[in-house]
């Protein structure tokens, strides 16, 4: 596997969409290629940062009140 091929399937690896053979080839490349290892870590870090900082908030209670009031009017 070369760097171009690696870059083309980096999302499949992060999304756990590879079979064992593909994972083995992928890992073999990034353990021996610092540039691709950095690229993988950077992609992974980007996703983790998104999940870390953009955590779920509770919706306002008024949504439920208004939705069910409107539905009562529809019925």
């Amino acid at each position: 596997m070369n760097c171009v091929e690696f870059n083309a399937i980096i999302d499949s690896f992060l999304d756990k969409e590879m079979d064992d053979k593909e994972v083995a080839e992928f890992e073999l490349h990034f353990t021996s290629c610092e540039k691709c290892r950095n690229e993988l870590e950077s992609f992974d870090k980007c996703s983790r940062i998104l999940r870390y900082v953009l955590r779920d908030v509770n919706p306002p209670l008024s949504i439920k009140d208004i939705v069910f009031r409107k539905i009562d009017n529809i019925r």
Binding site: P59, P60, S62, I63, I66, V67, K70, I71, I74
Partner: peptide, 18 residues
């Protein structure tokens, strides 16, 4: 935007119901 998110969420669930 919180207000718009609330408004659109209501709309989404009304559409879902309908």
């Amino acid at each position: 935007n919180n207000d718009i998110a609330e408004e659109l969420s209501q709309e989404i669930f009304i559409k879902t119901y309908n």
